[in-house]
Each structure stands twice: as structure tokens, then as C-alpha cells.
Design a protein around this nucleic acid. Sequence first.
DNA 1: CGCCAGGACGCCC
DNA 2: GGGCGTCATGGC
Length: 273
Amino acid sequence: MDYEIKGKDIIVSEADLDLDETLDCGQAFRWKKIPSDYECTYTGSFFNDKLTVSQTSKGSFIFHDTDENDFISKWIRYFDFETDYSELKRCFSEEETLAKACRFAGGIRLLRQNSWECLISFIISQNNNIPRIKGIIDRLCGHYDGRFPEINELSEENADSLSYLRSGFRAKYLEDAALRTASGETDLDAIASLPIDEARTALKKVKGVGPKVAECVLLFGMYRTEAFPVDVWIKRVLAKYYPDGFPEFAKSNAGIAQQYLFHYIRSISGQSE
DNA sequence: CGCCAGGACGCCC
DNA sequence: GGGCGTCATGGC
């Protein structure tokens, strides 16, 4: 990945990235496509660091109004630019279905998100659809002046005071997640570095966090690339293409492979947005 | 009216 | 340990 500074912007060329595929594929819920003269432009946040980023018709990227320090300390990491996705896809493509999935949506990258935001977001995601998940998170952040609430802010609320979210039965789970996290009983930073099975167990102590949500927090919020969230779509992939189990060679990066497969199966089922 | 959505819980056996 | 009804809300 190469970048250059151009005025108040940072220009990135030859990144293995497609903004539509990466920012609107169901791993993050706060990026919004806005009108622009570029191929596409999104505005959003890494927790509460805001960014507007454009993709040009030539496949380069403009990180608007950011300086080199911010780019290096925040955005290189968030977009996982330190990982060679061409190499990853080459590895995945040893297997036929994965090869197709990589060809179909090769511009997906794993976003290295904030663990707290992921915990809350994926609790909201359970038995829900992506547009409504976005709506609930929108109302949540709207309540905090467009920011994602800090742990101590959300821990002051309860299921009743969260009714404005219209999150249904999930509100009591949000209350529990905020209380446990605020008290330190659930220490997300500590969990992030635990052996993965211990991390799973610790996360699932939060009410409303089961196997799927725990995997999502591990993968998207703690960069545990071996975590493998299994939702209704991935269940279909596993049943149809991997009846004997997911290929061993891809397991250390199974979560990233899962991203390509999720996008692929939804597209061939006609269910992508 | 029904069914489904990036599921988890509680209860049953 | 696995199976099943239930849990809000909203779009189709």
C-alpha cells in the first residue's frame, strides 16, 4: 500500500479495497454513502474518530481532511492496510468456492473496529436485519450528538430509558452489557488477548451474547481472524459447499474468508441490498 | 395475515 | 447435551 500527502488529504493507490464491499457488507453499521463527484464516497467513524473517504474511478482512495499522523495511527490500522490481502486471497483460492467468493467481492477488507462498539452493535444485530440494525445504531448515536456512547454513558441507562431505540427485547441485553463492562466485570481489552476459547466464554457471560455475537466481537472488534461467525447465511454455505467441514488450511484466517463467503452467498441468492 | 432478519434464552426432555 | 417456543420491531 502506497500513500502520498496532497494538501489536506492522503491519497492511497493500489489498495486491495472496494469501499462499497468493505463499508457496507454488514461488518460495520455506521458508514454512510454520500453524494460526490467520485466513484463513491463514505463518511463514518472508527469509534469516535470521523473520516470521509472516497474511491476514484481509477481505484485510488482519498482520505479527506486527515494528516499523516492520523492516517498512520488510526486509518492504516482500521483498514488493515498492514495485511496483504492479495496474498490472503491467493491462499484462499486453493479451494473452489472460496476462489469464486474472492473473485466476486475481492475488495472486502476486515475492518479493525472498536471492541465496545462491536459488542453493542452485534447484540443489536441478533435476529435482526441490516437496515434495521443501522437504524437502531443511528438512533443510539443520534442521542449522543452523533457519537457512539462511551461505556460509562450507556451504563447510566436501562432497558426502559433505551426505549427510544425501538430495539425490542435487545434493550435489556444492552443494559447488561453496559453494566458489566462499566464495572470491569467484563474487561474487553483483557478478553482481547485471552486464548480464544477463554475469550468466547468471557464474552458469553454478557446476556444476549451467544456463540454468533461472541464470534463477531472477536473477529471485528478484537482482530481475532480465526473467529468464525456462523449466521443463517454461513450455515447455508457450510451445508452446501462444506458438508465435511471448513477447509483446514484457511482456519487461521477463517473469519476473513467468512466475509467473502457471506457476501458471495447473499449475492447468488439475490439477497444483497 | 404470514414469514424473515448477521440469535439467544428458558425450559423441556 | 439437543430441540423448540418465545422474544420486539419492521419490511415485504
